[in-house]
Amino acid sequence: MLIYGGTAVTLRHKFRTATHDIDYALRGPSPLFEDCVAAVGEKYRLFPHWMHSLEQFTSAPHFRENFCRHADALHLDAASGNLSFLVQDSDWQLAHKLCWFRRDRKNDGRDIVGILQGRDGDAAKQVSRSVQDVFGEDATFDTDGTMLLDALEQGINLDELAVRLYRRAQYYETVYSYLFPLLCQKDVLAAGKICWMESLFWRTEEDIRTSLARYGVHLPSIIVNHTARVMFKPEFWNL
């Protein structure tokens, strides 16, 4: 079994002590293993996808080959005996999190910074090298990944970067947990577009009003004003 994602970070690095779920891949289909996962989940009342399978691993040979190139064996001593897993390495973690970095996920930013803090040398160069090694010379960062790389190239302190990324994630968590249910009462489709796309570009209260008007959604002024006061703090944006 191959372990990747947050579980791999937790196993490899001391800065992270837990993960929400277990991301894994098998070299081939295994109905018995899937039955065991379901049985354990039912016994301990875990949520349905407490173990998440990487389907792309079995369907894309090139992806599988590249994955194995960036994974190595990790041996653990357990009460039932010795366990061995093939675990994703840190270069893969950095590459994936930078190319698909999402500012609303607290763990993405924390993992990137945590991995870099455990290394010596120029952080920006290490990030670029990891991405090129995993995805090739033509690899590109997404918008948020580019923003983070720019901050690293400008020499931002990694501890400060970790704090700011966490605060930004809190901001987006507020957007989704507070605004999304309210907007769903008005228009479910519009709620998704506003919270997942429009909110990425909000900086002022007027930006919120413009988005709501664009989708024909009305919220009381007191809610819009409260949203702006809670969310638009300088520390969220001065990355």
Rank of each mutant, 00 (worst) to 15 (best):
Y172S: 03
G145Q: 01
Y171E: 03
A79P: 15
L32Y: 09
P61W: 05
F15T: 00
H75C: 14
L152Y: 08
V230M: 12
C184V: 07
V230Q: 14
S177W: 05
R229M: 13
Y24D: 00
D77K: 15
A169C: 06
T204W: 06
L183P: 08
E137P: 13
G121D: 03
P61R: 05
S177D: 07
Y215P: 03
V113C: 08
A162F: 07
L149H: 14
R12K: 12
L11C: 03
I156L: 14
D35I: 02
V163A: 07
R45S: 14
V87T: 01
L165A: 01
R45Y: 12
D133R: 11
F232R: 08
L148Q: 02
D104M: 09
S221V: 08
A139F: 10
L94Y: 03
H49D: 14
T174D: 09
F101N: 05
A8G: 10
K14Y: 10
Q117C: 10
Y178E: 05
V40N: 03
V127Y: 05
W196P: 11
D144S: 12
I112S: 04
P220Y: 00
H62R: 05
E160Q: 06
Y4T: 05
R110V: 14
S80E: 13
L239E: 15
K233D: 15
L152T: 02
R119N: 09
H226T: 13
T17S: 09
L183W: 00
Y4D: 01
N238C: 09
F47Y: 08
P234F: 00
A18P: 11
I208T: 01
Q93V: 11
V175Q: 00
D122C: 12
A191E: 02
T174N: 04
L161A: 03
G109R: 00
V87I: 05
F141Y: 15
M197E: 13
Y24E: 02
A73P: 08
H62K: 09
L158R: 01
D35L: 14
W92D: 02
H96P: 10
E137N: 04
T58S: 11
Q88P: 07
E173I: 04
L98H: 08
F180P: 01
Q154S: 14
D150V: 06
D91W: 07
V217I: 09
V175I: 10
N225P: 12
Y166V: 15
L179D: 02
A8P: 13
L26D: 03
A139H: 10
L2E: 06
Q56R: 14
F67T: 01
E160T: 03
K233Y: 12
P234S: 02
D159K: 04
V224D: 09
Q117W: 09
T204H: 05
